[in-house]
C-alpha cells in the first residue's frame, strides 16, 4: 500500500498576468516505510509540494492521499498523524531546548517520556544543552532539535523540507544516519534536498526542476538511465581545457566536476576518438578515465534535455 499518493497536482501563484506555476502536473507514489527523496534546486517547487501534502496549502487541481487520507477532506486527521519540519528554522528561539520539546509534546497530546525511545538517539546529542535557548544553538543542533520536535508524537509519515540546507558536511552525514534509524522504526519519510549527493541515500527519488518531475526512480535506476559514455579529464590549465572540450564535435557536454571535468560523449563509438584528440593536443599533465555517472551528471543531463 502507498503511504503517499500524489496525482496530477498543479499549483500556481499570482493573478493571470504574472502567474507563476510552482507545480506542473506532479504525480508519484511513496511506499510505506521508505525514504523518498525530492531532489531539486531552490525554486523547483519542493516547498509548495510539502505544504500541499501537509494540508497547509490547497492545490489548484489534482489529488493527494497521505496515509490513506485525502489532504483536503480529511486534513484534521492527517494533522494528527504526520510530522513536519519546514525549511526555515521553525522553533521558538526564546524558549530553551527542553521548553520547546515539552511544548510540542503537549500540543500533540503526548509527553517526552511516552515516545522517548523514538527520539532517544537524537535527543541524547542535544541533551547537554537542554537549558540553552534554541536561538543560541548551532545549525546542526537546531536541526536535531527540530527533528526531535517533529517526531515527538510518533508520526506515521515524516515530512522534512530541506533539513540539510546550510548545514555542514559532517552534520549532514549525521542527519542521514538518524533518518536511517527512523526508517528502521517503520516511519515513512519524504525528504527534500538541493544536494544531489544525498539522493544516493534515498530508496527512491523524484528529480524536480521548475515544477516538473524530470525522473522518478531508484538512485541506481536514475544512473543506469544515463545512456551516454562519460569521461573524467584533467590537465594543467583547467579553464582552457574546458573551452577546448566544449568546442569538440564529438562531445555532447562538458562541465567541471570536482577536480576533473566531466565529458559527456555523444555515443560509444566516439570515445576512442575523444581520447585520441585529447592525447594529440598539447595538454600537459593530461589525465583521463572512464567513469560511472553520478546522480548530478544525470540531473544536469535531464535538466538540459527538457
Amino acid at each position: 500500500m502507498s503511504s503517499i499518493s500524489v496525482k496530477n497536482i498543479i499549483k500556481s501563484y499570482g493573478k493571470k498576468k504574472d502567474k507563476v506555476i510552482a507545480l506542473n502536473d506532479i504525480s508519484f507514489e511513496v511506499k510505506e516505510g521508505e525514504i523518498f527523496g525530492i531532489i531539486g534546486p531552490d525554486g523547483a517547487g519542493k516547498t509548495s509540494l510539502f505544504r500541499i501534502l501537509t494540508t497547509l496549502l490547497l492545490a489548484d487541481s489534482g489529488t493527494a492521499i497521505v496515509d490513506g487520507l485525502d489532504v483536503i477532506k480529511e486534513f484534521e486527521k492527517i494533522r494528527k498523524r504526520v510530522g513536519y519540519m519546514p525549511g526555515r528554522f521553525s522553533l521558538y528561539q526564546d524558549l530553551t531546548v527542553k521548553e520547546n520539546l515539552d511544548f510540542f509534546a503537549t500540543i500533540f497530546n503526548t509527553s517526552i517520556e511516552e515516545n522517548y525511545s523514538l527520539i532517544k538517539d537524537i535527543y541524547l546529542q542535544i541533551e547537554p544543552f537542554k537549558d540553552r535557548r534554541a536561538g543560541k544553538l548551532s545549525g546542526g543542533m537546531k536541526q536535531k532539535l527540530a527533528l526531535s520536535c517533529a517526531l515527538i508524537h510518533r508520526p506515521v509519515v515524516l515530512f522534512l523540507d530541506e533539513p540539510t540546507t546550510g548545514v555542514d558536511a559532517v552534520s549532514r552525514k549525521e542527519f542521514w544516519e538518524m533518518l536511517k534509524g527512523l526508517k528502521a522504526q517503520g516511519i515513512t519519510i519524504l525528504v527534500s534536498t538541493p544536494y544531489m549527493d544525498e539522493a544516493m541515500l534515498c530508496d527512491n527519488v523524484a528529480l524536480l526542476q521548475k515544477g516538473k518531475v524530470l525522473s522518478i526512480n531508484t538512485p541506481a535506476g536514475v544512473i543506469t538511465d544515463f545512456k551516454y559514455p562519460l569521461m573524467a579529464v584533467k590537465a594543467k590549465g583547467m579553464l582552457p581545457l574546458l573551452e577546448q572540450l566544449k568546442a569538440m564535435e564529438t562531445v555532447k557536454d562538458a562541465y567541471p566536476f570536482g577536480e576533473y571535468h566531466h565529458v559527456v560523449i555523444k555515443n560509444e563509438q566516439l570515445v576512442q576518438q575523444v581520447r585520441d584528440t585529447l592525447s594529440n593536443s598539447s595538454l600537459s599533465d593530461l589525465q583521463m578515465k572512464r567513469v560511472e555517472a553520478d546522480i548530478e551528471d544525470c540531473f544536469i543531463d535531464l535538466m538540459k534535455e527538457k
Partner: peptide
C-alpha cells in the same frame, strides 16, 4: 513570519 505557525497548523491543536 518565523514559520512556527506552519508547525502549529500541522498539529492537532
Amino acid at each position: 513570519e518565523t514559520g512556527t505557525m506552519e508547525i502549529l497548523l500541522v498539529s492537532p491543536v
